[in-house]
Design a binder for these strands. Structure first.
Ligand SMILES: [Mn+2]
Ligand SMILES: [Mn+2]
Ligand SMILES: [Mn+2]
Ligand SMILES: [Mn+2]
Lengths: 152, 152
DNA sequence: CGGAATTTAAAGCCTCGGCTACACTTTTGT
DNA sequence: ACAAAAGTGTAGCCGAGGCTTTAAATTCCG
């Protein structure tokens, strides 16, 4: 998380390393994002999000899910008390909503450029976390114009 | 890396968790890929890839770069001997070539759908690792048809 | 040649995200 | 009501990928 002390040549080198830093930062949010969305899904579908169900859907063991939830709590995105389900805070719910919307846009964009929908769904799960705001807006604009003027 | 014992309902549930597994698998290759490409770049540009230069370009400290190189060696992608530079094996060079080509396609695709090129370059660094073969080919096909029939 | 600067190595610490094993609650069903 | 089953918590292990600090080797230069 903490970047190494910049070899700042007084504005000279435009830090080519910035790309990698951004990718690392994005990745550090990925798990949080996926769990938030999943908890939101489960709450909607089943009324509550239980650790076992979260773990099953994420494809991990329950202690792993427990740890992830602990991190969500630490970051103020969720609450939970022993043996009761997990609940998103307002911030957590807001994150889940954003993540879900972005996921859908990414899948749609992939399909729009010709990726088979199953593959799109698979790849989107990893891709989504690296789609910046700017790129997301570009995707939306592309989808808009594609959906309206579909001149074959 | 090791997936938890599948709750395999005899072919019933098509493992919704598969998406997450794939994303995790892709991510586990990301660092290797970026370092391989970087070592290849440095070798081309400067005749050799030194730990210090690798670290600077990746935006990490040199001990971190050393560890990454150790992993590359362990995986048969690079060689190095104390106080001499780092060199890619044939497998490493092949990986670097693939990664570089994929990176370019991803950037081009992003630009083609309207992402500003600076943003494309930044986002591509993270995105590229989650672009499957199938998606890559779809991107190439899209770029081909776009570049030829550009009917405004 | 020899000392200073640069580069590399080595050790040790941290967080995160996996896992297993085991203990404890809670829920379920007879 | 109570035993079995299911769910949850907790401890401890591991590897990856960051970091700092300290020590050694190499390279550069006067
Ligand atoms: Mn995801
Ligand atoms: Mn998603
Ligand atoms: Mn990359
Ligand atoms: Mn790249």
């Amino acid at each position: 998380m903490t970047e190494p002390t910049q070899t700042d040549d007084a504005g000279t080198t435009p830090a080519t390393s910035a790309r990698f830093s951004q990718a690392r930062a994005a990745q550090s949010m990925a798990v949080l994002e996926d769990y938030a969305e999943m908890i939101d899904d489960l709450t909607a579908e089943m009324g509550e999000a239980r650790i076992t169900d979260i773990a099953a859907r994420m494809g991990v063991t329950h202690p792993t899910a427990t740890k992830a939830v602990a991190r969500l709590k630490r970051e103020g995105l969720a609450n939970s008390r022993p043996y009761r389900g997990v609940f998103l805070t307002e911030a957590g719910a807001a994150l889940a909503a954003r993540v879900r919307a972005r996921h859908r846009v990414v899948v749609d964009l992939l399909v729009a450029v010709g990726v088979p929908s199953e593959t799109a769904e698979l790849d989107a799960e990893g891709l989504e976390h690296h789609v910046s705001e700017v790129t997301l807006r570009a995707f939306e604009a592309f989808l808009d114009e594609t959906r309206s003027g579909s001149a074959a």
